[in-house]
Design a protein around this nucleic acid. Structure first.
Length: 166
DNA sequence: AAAGTGATCATG
DNA sequence: ATGATCACTTTG
């Protein structure tokens, strides 16, 4: 599957489709890390009260309005970097949070494992970080409610936008 | 169950 | 300027 097309799709579809794809991280020293995505979450635009952009554009959320394939990285709880991939149409703030890859379970661990921090924020996929599809299809992907979004509306909390390979 | 940790954003 | 709020992890 073409990764650009995949990322053009609405965040919930893209999040589901990204499970099983491979994240390729190329470090400045030439090291290449390659790991399959096992878990994602979708954040679906200004109407999604769980999405950072639900209160519109700010300096931080501006990145979410950029084109699909843009990388959004932010610091959470003062400690953890969160890796997101912007999806959907430009100017529509949707993104997929990478919550797990093979070798690292949990969004904070993913970035630690792949050496990702704020320096990748607002970069495009392709060089330092890229997606690959090797044709692997995860045998079973479950959908469940997103975690850590207690501030969102009950309807948005209930959406099954967390996707995990079994 | 709760702490550790710091950028971000809305207040004043 | 200050304070509240976190898309988490670890420890007990």
């Amino acid at each position: 599957m073409n990764m650009n097309e995949l990322l053009m799709r609405p965040a919930p579809e893209a999040a589901r489709a990204l499970v099983g794809k491979i994240l390729v991280r190329r470090l400045p020293d030439g090291t290449v890390l390659r790991s399959r995505i096992t878990e994602t979450e979708a954040y679906f635009g200004e109407s999604d009260t769980a999405c950072h952009a639900c209160h519109g554009r700010t300096k931080r959320t501006e990145v979410l309005y950029h084109r699909a394939g843009t990388i959004y990285v932010y610091l959470c709880y003062g400690i953890h970097w969160m890796l997101n991939l912007v999806t959907g149409p430009e100017d529509d703030p949707q993104a997929v949070l990478i919550r797990g890859v093979e070798g690292a379970s949990g969004p904070g661990r993913v970035t630690k494992y792949l050496h990702i921090d704020k320096s990748l924020n607002d970069c495009l996929l392709g060089d330092e970080l890229a997606l690959e599809d090797d044709g692997y299809v995860p045998p079973h992907v479950t959908a469940s409610p997103r975690v850590g979004i207690g501030y969102a509306s009950p309807e948005d909390q209930a959406r099954l936008w967390r996707f995990r390979a079994k």
